[in-house]
């Protein structure tokens, strides 16, 4: 498998919603296609938008129409493998689950793709640190619209 060589999933392994849906409101993107015996995301979703077919080893899928982009699944997923993408504000937003020291709101950062390569620059739009996420924080990155499919990490500037 290509992804076991690279250590990350490629865009072709991931299901994305339509551009139209992305313009409406945020939406959850699950990057977990490896049949892990795991299901908290299904139970976490208040809207029943995440399902696992068959047994616990199947991969979860999001119904992009019922997903409201609330982000609850991001804070629950043990693999930190769910992201939010959003084009509703006229610029690009990607939210990533994060368990390192949090950056500051408004801080300029280097934007990294799934392989850790710098693909642009952006800023920290929002940080959500909710009790129910148990120390997993949600970092929302502001960026160029074109980047939301590829940006999954960031590096703080020194």
């Amino acid at each position: 498998m290509e992804y076991t060589k690279k250590g990350y999933f490629l865009e072709k392994h991931i299901k994305f919603p339509s551009k139209k849906r992305l313009r409406e409101k945020p939406v959850a993107i699950i990057e977990c296609t490896q049949n892990i015996p795991c299901n908290p995301c299904v139970e976490a979703c208040p809207f029943g938008a995440i399902t696992i077919e068959g047994n616990i080893n199947s991969s979860p899928e999001v119904n992009f129409e019922t997903c409201t982009g609330c982000g609850f699944c991001l804070g629950i997923c043990p693999g930190l493998a769910i992201f939010l993408m959003d084009l509703s504000k006229g610029y690009g937003l990607v939210t990533i689950p994060y368990e390192l020291f949090p950056p500051d709101k408004g801080e300029p950062v280097d934007l990294l793709d799934r392989s850790g390569q710098k693909v642009g620059e952006g800023t920290i739009e929002q940080i959500r640190n909710l009790k129910k996420y148990d120390r997993t924080i949600l970092v929302t990155l502001k960026m160029d619209e074109k980047l939301i499919k590829i940006v999954r990490g960031f590096r703080r500037k020194k």
Partner: peptide, 23 residues
């Protein structure tokens, strides 16, 4: 090994922070 044995969700957390993994 020529491939990563870990769950890819775990290795992806490292990769997207820029840590090199040499298989």
């Amino acid at each position: 090994l020529p491939r990563i044995g870990a769950y890819i969700v775990h290795s992806a957390k490292l990769k997207r922070l820029g840590v090199p993994i040499f298989t």
